[in-house]
């Protein structure tokens, strides 16, 4: 099994986000960046599949600036064999990113290409399926369980009120959801070994995107909750407020 994992460097989900001076990007000063949490499911799945097979190669791809090397090394510390950085400024346009990833992976002979189902910074869900389309490969998104047998993958997706089971031939592209596995922590030895693993830096030129980010805004601060009382005695007041203040009844 030769497995690729596509990885994105994103702000830590607990980081306090400040909109930058241009009003269109986040201010990176003091913000901790981590591997996209959904991509960690992809990393874990790649490692587990390779361990189960007892052989194979796992490769992580990331598109971004030099700082993404650190993100790639996190994947190497977890056990991925080697990394490729497609070095560019990045783009808000998922189609352009998918094109660059597809070009890099084309002809590399991957049996499986794994993505997180979305990147938590822009919540686009796009790059995985678009990459599959460029490569002409089948794609199953938001996979919460998978098994591979006889050159075919069976994937379960959690859909509204149930589970959808799909199957497709390998090679295929899958995007991974929470629940697929429990990503491992890198061991200390893995962290030390990561800097000795191959990490190719390949400059890429992105095509002009067709999407432009006009502005970023933080959500409005949540107003404080209100406790109207306890038990049945509070119900009339609650109904009154829902009807006359919140106007939802």
């Amino acid at each position: 099994m030769k497995i690729a994992v596509c990885l994105k460097r994103v702000p830590d989900t607990t980081a306090k986000i400040v909109v930058g001076g241009d009003g269109k990007s986040i201010d990176e000063a003091g913000v901790k960046f981590v591997p996209n949490p959904f991509d960690e499911y992809a990393i874990e799945e790649a490692l587990a599949l390779k361990e189960k097979a007892g052989a194979g190669e796992t490769v992580v791809y990331s598109l971004g600036g030099d700082s993404s090397q650190e993100t790639i090394r996190t994947a190497l510390a977890m056990g991925i064999d080697r990394g490729v950085l497609l070095k560019t400024e990045g783009s808000a346009d998922g189609l352009v990113v998918a094109r660059a990833l597809a070009d890099a992976m084309e002809g590399e002979g991957f049996d499986l290409i794994l993505f997180g189902k979305l990147a938590v910074d822009d919540n686009n869900y796009q790059v995985g399926p678009m990459t599959a389309e460029f490569l002409g490969l089948p794609c199953v998104t938001t996979v919460a369980h998978l098994s591979i047998e006889d050159g075919a993958v069976t994937a379960e997706r959690e859909i509204e009120g149930g589970v959808e089971v799909s199957t497709c031939r390998l090679p295929a592209v899958l995007t991974c959801d929470k629940g697929l596995n429990e990503p491992r922590l890198p061991k200390l030895k893995g962290i030390m070994a990561a800097k000795k693993k191959p990490l190719d830096v390949k400059p890429v030129e992105l095509a002009a995107g067709s999407i432009e980010v006009l502005g970023l805004e933080l959500p409005p601060a949540r107003s404080e909750g209100k406790i109207v009382g306890e038990g049945p005695d509070a119900v009339p007041e609650l109904i009154n407020l829902l009807r006359n203040e919140a106007k939802v009844l």
């Binding site: 090394r73 890198p186 030390m192 990561a194 800097k195």
Partner: peptide, 9 residues
């Protein structure tokens, strides 16, 4: 980078 990675882990 390794020192930070160790600490964060």
């Amino acid at each position: 980078e390794e020192e930070r990675a160790v600490r964060d882990m």
